[in-house]
Amino acid sequence: MNMPTQFASNQKKTMSTRVIADLCEKKPQHVKRDCENMFISLGLDASRFGHIYFDSMNRQQTEYLLDEELTMTLVTGYNIVLRNRVIKRWKELENYTKSVITQFQIPTSLSEALQLAADQARKIEQDKPKVNYYEKIVVRDTLLNATQVAQKLSISAISLNKHLEELDVYNRSIKRCRAFQQWFVDQELGLLKQTELGYSQPMFTLKGEAWVIEKLVSEGAIS
C-alpha cells in the first residue's frame, strides 16, 4: 500500500494543507489561511512549516506540512464529521507505520542477515504465481480507463477528461501522455499502467472511480 508522501514512515509524519483541504472539502487557500491564523495565535514561524510544490500549470506554490498536534489543533474549529475524517487518516498512518516496522526487522548479525535474504528469496519464488495472477486477472478487473469510467457516467471520455483537468487530476507538465498528479496516485485513486502495445495509460482504481463520481456529482457536472 502506498501512503501519501506526507506520510513517509522514515521521517517525521506530517499532513499537508492540500490533503487536509481534500479531507475537509475546503479550498486549499482557505486551509492555508486558517493555518496562518493558527501560527500567529501560537506564536509560530510559518516558514518552518512551508513546503514548495508545482501545480498543474507548473507554477510554484506553497503549502504547509503539519504534524499531528498542529493538524488536530487546526481542525478543532471544523465540524465533527470533518475532524473525524482527519483523525481516521492519522490512524491509517499509525497502523501503516506499525506494519512496516513489524515487517522489516533490521538484522543484528551476519547470520540473521543471510537468513533474512534466504527467506525473502524463497517468499518471492512462492509468490510468483500469485503476482502473475494479480497482474493478469485482478488488476485488469479492478482498474478502469477513462472511457470505462465515462461510460458509467453516460458521458464521453473527452468530456470526463476535461472535468478531470479542471479538478487538477492530470499532470499537465507531461506532454507525451496523460498522467495523474502525484497526490491522486498517493491517495490510491489511480496509477499509470503499460498497455500490451507498450503505451502508458492512466488507470482508475475502484476507489478512484468512486472519487470521480462523487466529485462530478457534488460540483453539478453530472446528475
Rank of each mutant, 00 (worst) to 15 (best):
F104Q: 09
Q201T: 10
I124A: 12
L143A: 04
R176H: 12
K207L: 14
N2E: 14
G50W: 00
P28T: 06
V81S: 13
V19N: 04
T142M: 13
E166G: 14
W90I: 08
Y96V: 01
K123N: 10
A118W: 01
Y96R: 05
I106T: 13
E69G: 08
I80S: 12
C35K: 03
P4L: 07
N79M: 06
Q60K: 15
M57Y: 13
D55F: 04
Q105I: 14
A21S: 14
G43C: 09
L23G: 04
N84W: 00
Q6G: 10
D67A: 07
D186Q: 12
R83V: 09
K91E: 10
L216F: 07
K123H: 08
S9P: 11
K207N: 12
F204K: 01
V86L: 04
R59C: 11
M203Q: 12
C24P: 02
K193T: 11
D186Y: 05
Q126P: 00
Q60F: 00
K26I: 03
M1W: 03
N2C: 01
R89E: 10
Q105D: 05
I174W: 03
L74D: 06
Q11Y: 01
S9F: 11
M57W: 04
A179W: 00
D34L: 10
G77T: 09
L189Y: 15
Q115E: 15
N79R: 07
V149F: 03
A179P: 00
S200V: 04
A113T: 03
M57E: 13
G190M: 07
D119R: 12
K91G: 04
F180G: 08
I52W: 02
N37W: 02
L66I: 06
A8L: 10
E94L: 11
L160K: 02
Y199R: 14
L153Q: 11
W183I: 11
S223M: 11
G198T: 09
A179E: 13
L110G: 01
I87G: 00
V75D: 06
L66S: 08
L42Y: 15
T142D: 05
S111I: 11
E94I: 12
I222G: 00
E219D: 09
I20Y: 00
S159E: 13
L42H: 13
L160T: 05
N2P: 13
A46F: 03
A157S: 15
M203T: 04
N145H: 07
W90A: 07
N2H: 09
S159V: 10
A210Y: 06
